[in-house]
């Protein structure tokens, strides 16, 4: 990790005010993604994967507040920058693909116009050329008959095609960082494979860093260079993909792998993870939020989390990791 990362997130903490109290949704989340690299953020629902992406993009729900940390995109700290500064890079330097393409697209504008909007706003494309460039982009994301499809509304397209349009919009300005939040959830496995190929190919073409959020460990295993495992708003482990699956060190990572259907030969081999996510509104949360579910808990776990990374490249937030 000598070169400056495309995106560096350090010590990010986010809290939400709710009627039931303050939810400490993220605490000290840190990771980096290099140019051309695919980083997967995996975890179960409620682990803070999406909140991380929303915080970095500056689109958190109004009830949420970044309480600490920085997100460096080149020389700009996205979390400290003014709204104008963020607006200038969002869409141009850093773009996002959302989980449900049909609701993320504008239902009353044709997809060609929606792509042209981005080109005009972020890619300095002259107004005259925008429609033609939109058609080119539709062709680039593998939509057949792009000139005709440019005039279609999102409801006239299948889920897979809408996701291709989302990708065209996200990549219109050739950003240096792409955040894809569950881009294939709800799509068929065959379509999923094609969409993931497409994101991978386009990322390679323009040397883009991809942060790919998923709950599907098998998909992350297949597509990511490195993986960040999150649990209850903490990053519990970060490692290169092969290393993580060969030698998971955090007990939670190991449990998560053992619960994935693909890992087992039969149903009784599948292991469930005891306990549930802790209530993040509690004021007496232990330093390690997994401690209360952890079979390897020891006294250190109730004092603080280990600070320094044990092994370079492979970082685990645990006092008693698996060896």
């Amino acid at each position: 990790m000598t070169a400056a990362p495309a995106l560096l997130v350090e010590d990010l903490s986010v809290a939400f005010r709710t009627r039931g109290g303050v939810v400490q949704a993220l605490e000290h989340v840190s990771f980096a993604v290099q140019k051309g690299e695919t980083l997967a953020i995996v975890g179960e629902s409620g682990s803070g994967k999406s909140v991380t992406a929303y915080a970095v993009m500056g689109i958190l729900d109004p009830a949420g507040r970044v309480t600490a940390g920085r997100a460096m995109l080149g020389g700009l700290d996205l979390l400290a920058a003014s709204a104008d500064q963020v607006a200038a890079v969002r869409g141009r330097e850093i773009a996002m693909i959302f989980q449900n393409p049909r609701t993320a697209l504008n239902p009353i504008r044709t997809v060609g116009k929606q792509i042209a909007d981005v080109l005009l706003r972020h890619a300095n494309v002259p107004r005259r050329e925008a429609p033609g460039r939109a058609v080119d982009l539709l062709r680039a994301v593998g939509i057949t008959d792009p000139a005709r499809r440019a005039d279609a509304y999102p409801f006239e397209m299948s889920g897979g095609m809408c996701q291709r349009v989302m990708i065209a919009i996200a990549l219109a300005a050739r950003p240096s960082v792409l955040i894809a939040d569950e881009p294939t959830t709800g799509l068929d496995v065959t379509t999923q494979a094609v969409i993931m190929d497409l994101i991978g190919d386009l990322a390679r073409d323009i040397g883009m860093a991809t942060i790919f959020i998923t709950h599907d460990l098998a998909l992350a295993a297949q597509r990511a260079d490195r993986i960040v495992v999150m649990h209850a708003g903490h990053v519990v482990e970060t490692a290169p993909t092969a290393e993580l699956f060969a030698r998971p060190r955090h007990p939670y990572t190991a449990e998560l792998i053992a619960a994935t259907p693909d890992a087992a030969a039969n149903l009784s081999e599948l292991a469930s993870i005891p306990g549930a996510l802790p209530d993040l509104r509690r004021s007496d949360l232990p330093p390690c939020r997994y401690a209360e579910r952890c079979p390897r808990r020891q006294t250190d776990c109730d004092v603080a989390l280990p600070a320094a990374p044990a092994i370079p490249e492979h970082v685990v937030a645990c006092w008693n990791p698996l060896s």
């Binding site: 179960e44 629902s45 709950h215 460990l217 449990e255 998560l256 619960a259 994935t260 259907p261 149903l267 009784s268 599948l270 292991a271 469930s272 993870i273």
Partner: peptide, 11 residues
Amino acid sequence: LDVSVQVVILQ
């Protein structure tokens, strides 16, 4: 469902 819950339901 999440994988950890899915396991329990399948079993």
